[in-house]
Design a protein around this nucleic acid. Structure first.
Lengths: 237, 237
DNA sequence: GTCTGACAACTGGTCCAACCAGTTGACGGG
DNA sequence: CCCGTCAACTGGTTGGACCAGTTGTCAGAC
């Protein structure tokens, strides 16, 4: 029997989570003023400093604008928040179906993955190409253990993106794979077909190693294509 | 004579900026322990709470991991930071050429823009299509004022992305357009050619309005293509 | 009456000082 | 040599005080 390390949320973490969900779900409409720090402190039953730390993080995410003297106002996250918010967007079930969100993330992954494969074939160093080939072997040898294959697959794509030399793609990939979304709540049948296609993965690695940009892009695009109308539903979680 | 509102950085803002730049530029190597909050407080000559607020934001960005009892450790931002960091990456001039970074951002914009145009033509509502057509007219009528055209262009692309119905694209677009990068420090000659192509923009809007996904994607891809080997250099800023 | 300035009552920003809680490593007894 | 204890760190939380900027009110000057 193994235990996972239980998460100890600090007070300000909890405040942050609650306010974040309240904002993205629209319970605090954009433009409205948040209660004052002192009010929030008494409302949550915590010290004002904890509230402040939470508000700083919300500001960092682009959810609120705080201004000395004036009130802290809620921003329209669709206009001001960055991609890092994506991994926290599951808290907006009411206003944004999780299923659509997963489709969006998969679409973006496909878009970036294909272009990264192209660029990787085009301008990766010899060492980076070897790393890709190596990763695809690790991936293939993990079959048929789905969990290990998934981990190896993530590692493979990370190497491809590193080979593309595009830092923006790398950071976006981090945003997409972090959090609950891509990792936890993607229904298996939206991923397993792709995950099990060892031949295509090997093919992709070979094209990258050979420097065939067009071919690598085409294979990657086909591999990552988002199935239309998949009946995937998110579980009770 | 008009004055811009002068920026008043709070103490914790400054601490945040300094530590962020120190980390992304590698002065605090990944894996190393940051000085304790109390040490940082005396070093910066500020109160510990200011340090804590800055550290919270760094944690939010994925640059450090703080753990009670243990030290606050620097993370490898290439592995843990999200796209929101991109707009702050100009502080890493020494380790990451700004020119490459701009190329990366433009590449990602092209990749997402083309796919968003495709999806917009495919599944935008009638109202969203009209908004795109309307925006392209505003853009065209702004010629030849480059500044106004730029603003109208950003608005046009925002509408296209909204029409695509992909929230991830929308957030990524926010990440890319926020901050100093895409707006301020892109050398004009890497953008003006695209910006002045009124015909192509009109064409794009028309294809979207007609629901021609393939055509819209092709036009968008051509329009946003990143010129290879452009001799653009960043100014002294 | 209208404008203007002072002022009071907010807002967030900063600081101090203390204590709680968890981690780490050294040190001494087994 | 091993292992538990404990002191000396680390971050987490609290209370209270005061500074700084914003906002709206309200009396006085025009």
């Amino acid at each position: 029997m193994t235990f996972e390390p239980l998460s100890r949320q600090s007070v300000s973490d909890q405040v942050f989570g609650r306010l974040r969900d309240a904002i993205v779900s629209g319970r605090y409409p954009a433009g409205d003023a948040l209660p004052s720090e002192r009010e929030l402190a008494t409302a949550f039953g915590v010290n004002r400093h904890a509230i402040r730390e939470a508000l700083r993080r919300l500001q960092q995410l682009g959810l609120v604008r705080v201004s000395q003297g004036g009130a802290t106002r809620v921003l329209d996250w669709r206009a001001t928040a960055g991609l890092d918010l994506a991994m926290a967007l599951t808290g907006a079930r009411d206003v944004l179906p999780v299923r659509t969100l997963i489709r969006d993330v998969l679409e973006m992954r496909a878009c970036i993955g294909a272009d990264a494969a192209r660029l990787c074939a085009q301008r990766a160093t010899g060492q980076q190409r070897r790393a890709v080939v190596e990763a695809v072997e690790t991936y293939a040898s993990a079959a048929p253990d789905l969990e290990r294959m998934g981990a190896a697959d993530r590692d493979l794509w990370r190497r491809i993106i590193e080979g593309s030399g595009n830092v923006a793609y790398l950071l976006a990939y981090n945003s997409l794979t972090a959090g609950d979304l891509a990792v936890g709540s993607v229904p298996p049948h939206r991923r397993t077909a792709e995950l099990l296609d060892v031949t295509a993965h090997r093919n992709l690695a070979e094209l990258i190693a050979d420097g065939d940009a067009g071919g690598a892009e085409a294979v990657a695009r086909a591999l990552l294509a988002v199935p239309v109308g998949a009946p995937g539903e998110i579980g009770a979680a």
